[in-house]
């Protein structure tokens, strides 16, 4: 919920520079972002532990970073956002990519160990897309319907449980077909974010087939004609369709398009974070400093696009660089 307001506030200005039609992907990167310029004396090893939704993104950044500093050793592990705080606190990783914000408990644990809070960098924007099979004719869903499909409790206010595609108004062979649910496992940030924002905090149904990776949700739906699942927009393939979502029961469905993400109209947009251990007011060591600079450079944000996510505007980049003392 909190991220929605953030989007409305911070990103409104950006919508202006976006074209009305779908822009060519490569042009989505804010032209105000600076290109990355390498410096000397960067070496050592980087370890990143965290979100698997951001696994490819981290890898792309790493590959881009390595093209400037071929000697840096980079290791990337992505088994779920919940693994990031643990690794940061234990000191086994310098970067903790997370597809959700840290929970208060996780921040407390970190603070207990180090005496200050971890620093969150908003590195890119994701839309959590709801996928159906490519042959599924469904046009749009409201969050309340989603809640009735996925949750036990229907906290969103839906009156009736939804079990078949017929319950959503589909006809023909779909009318009696039960909805087959795909989701992520509990370590995933995507799991938490969807629960918080689409299920209004309610619990998932037991029938949800929990998948080990973002991509396997999409592949599950691609194989299962009556399937529905949620995953990052970056994992879309030709075998699935993204369903437009409306925030309210009677609103018009909003397409999962970049401009809707930036304006904040799409209800399931979120930041993808990279957390680091940075004592406020101190200097980052050169390796981490340069990696962070790379993430917020034009190249780094192009990598974001390559992975199917959306880049952050220069405004956010500058703000977050400033929090870790980089001008």
């Amino acid at each position: 919920m909190q991220s929605k307001q953030l989007f409305k506030g911070i990103l409104a200005g950006l919508a202006v520079i976006l074209m009305v039609t779908v822009p060519a992907v490569a042009q989505m990167v804010d032209p105000d972002l600076k290109g990355y310029t390498p410096v000397s004396g960067v070496s050592g090893s980087i370890k990143s532990v965290g979100s698997d939704s951001m696994n490819n993104e981290m890898t792309l950044w790493a590959e881009g970073f390595l093209s400037f500093y071929p000697n840096v050793q980079i290791e990337i592990e992505g088994k779920g956002s919940s693994t990031a705080p643990v690794a940061l606190i234990a000191g086994t990783a310098q970067f903790g990519p997370m597809s959700r914000a840290m929970k208060a408990k996780e921040i407390d644990d970190f603070e207990k160990r180090y005496g200050y809070k971890p620093t969150a960098l908003r590195t890119s924007i994701d839309m959590l897309a709801v996928y159906v099979n490519k042959d599924n004719p469904i046009q749009g869903l409201s969050l309340q319907q989603l809640d009735a499909i996925f949750s036990k409790g229907r906290r969103g206010g839906a009156t009736k449980d939804i079990r078949t595609w017929g319950d959503l108004g589909l006809t023909g062979e779909w009318a009696n077909a039960p909805i087959s649910l795909y989701g992520r496992n509990a370590a995933s940030g995507t799991y938490g974010f969807f629960k918080e924002n689409a299920l209004f905090g309610g619990d998932y149904k037991d029938e949800v087939k929990e998948q080990p990776g973002s991509s396997s949700v999409v592949q599950g739906v691609a194989r299962d004609k009556f399937g529905i699942g949620y995953s990052g927009i970056g994992y879309r393939t030709a075998d699935v369709r993204v369903v437009a979502l409306s925030p309210t029961a009677d609103g018009t469905p909003v397409e999962a398009s970049p401009e809707n993400a930036y304006t904040g109209e799409y209800p399931l947009a979120r930041f993808l974070y990279v957390y680091i251990n940075h004592r406020p007011g101190s200097q980052l060591d050169p390796l981490r400093r340069e990696f962070v600079r790379y993430i917020f450079s034009r190249q780094g944000q192009e990598d974001v696009v390559k992975d199917g996510y959306y880049p952050v505007p220069a405004l956010i980049a500058e703000e977050d660089l400033a929090t870790v003392g980089i001008q």
Binding site: K47, D52, N55, N56, Q73, E75, G78, Q211, P212, G213, S214, S215, S216, V218, Q219, G234, Y235, T237, A238, D239, D307, G308
Partner: peptide
């Protein structure tokens, strides 16, 4: 002490984590 890549893990990664899963 270095981490390493492993073909078995690579298969898992390509199969379940790949962004462009059709190409993977």
């Amino acid at each position: 002490e270095r981490s390493f890549m492993h073909l078995g893990f690579h298969i898992f990664d390509l199969g379940f984590q790949s962004q462009n899963s059709e190409a993977a």
